[in-house]
């Protein structure tokens, strides 16, 4: 497919590939332990500390590298969970139809009615947001809309000849799901995955920035949170190396997911395909 080689999707893939590599290799390439007191407080960038140090003397370059791990783990975990739930509920409901479909869609309605961000903030404030709870929460908040889309697409697929024939020749539900539906739904699932992952990065950073996630975890939002709690930060040049890199990293990641999603859209969105 030519869209896969469009400049946008290539740029997005390159950005995300790079970030994944950074996250995976953080223990190897980070010059310091992100928790260690590697230097004096608020050292300016130098050859010893490429991005300087934060308020207590931790190496910011190492913290930004390690922060990629937190962001990407939450992004991929939450997106994976949301898609798994969406496929399970959406496709099954469409295939089973009848009462099962009705019940499943009412459940989806209930979840859709929940205000996502306020719920996230509330739960994070009450039980604390470590990586696992964040993955669970974002996954649970984001799955219902995807389940709806998948259900709709499955319903149209069901009417197609090949599905009907497969069932007519005695293919079971599982067989039809594996052999025919999932491959046909794959572009939609991929699109949903990318969108959820992108928003999950922002949500994780947002919660950490608000000080609602684990304050001792190394994350980009956490770096920003600590920086902004430093009284009078903007009276000194320290914000240029304490605030900017983490903010830049968040922007790049979200941009990566967005590029990928926009670049792949013609291939992934069923409406686009119908139109072309």
């Amino acid at each position: 497919m030519s869209v896969l080689r469009s400049p946008l999707s290539l740029a997005g893939a390159a950005l995300l590939g790079g970030l994944l590599l950074v996250g995976a290799l953080a223990p190897v390439i980070a010059p310091y332990d992100p928790h260690a007191l590697a230097g004096e407080a608020l050292e300016a960038p130098s050859s010893r500390h490429l991005l300087g140090t934060d308020g207590i003397g931790q190496d910011l370059f190492s913290r930004v590298l390690w922060g990629a791990r937190t962001s990407l783990t939450v992004a991929l975990g939450a997106a994976g969970l949301a898609m798994a739930l969406a496929v399970l509920v959406g496709v099954t409901a469409a295939l089973l139809g009848g009462a099962a479909d009705t019940v499943a869609m009412r459940v989806v309605d209930v979840f859709l009615a929940l205000p996502g961000l306020p719920l996230l903030v509330l739960v994070a404030a009450m039980v604390g947001a470590n990586r696992l709870t964040l993955i669970l929460l974002i996954g649970v908040i984001r799955w219902p809309e995807l389940a709806r889309v998948l259900r709709g697409q499955t319903l149209t697929l069901r009417q197609r000849g090949f599905v009907a024939s497969a069932r007519g020749f005695g293919g079971g539900l599982g067989w039809v799901l594996r052999r025919h539906l999932v491959p046909a739904l794959a572009p939609l699932i991929l699109a949903g995955f990318i969108t959820v992952a992108g928003t999950a990065v922002l949500m994780e950073a947002g919660l950490a920035f608000l000080g609602l996630s684990d304050p001792t975890a190394v994350s980009w939002g956490g770096i920003l949170n600590r920086a902004l709690l430093q009284p009078g930060l903007y009276f000194t040049p320290a914000w240029t190396w304490w605030v900017l890199p983490a903010g830049f990293a968040i922007t790049l990641t979200v941009l990566g997911f967005t590029f990928l999603a926009v670049g792949l859209e013609p291939a992934l969105n069923p409406r686009w395909r119908r139109a072309s």
Binding site: A36, L37, G55, I56, Q58, P215, T216, R226
Partner: peptide, 18 residues
Amino acid sequence: LVTTGPPLVAPTADLITA
């Protein structure tokens, strides 16, 4: 065990842990 309330606590926890 630390509280997320006062802003000083998290960096101090890092320093004590180290």
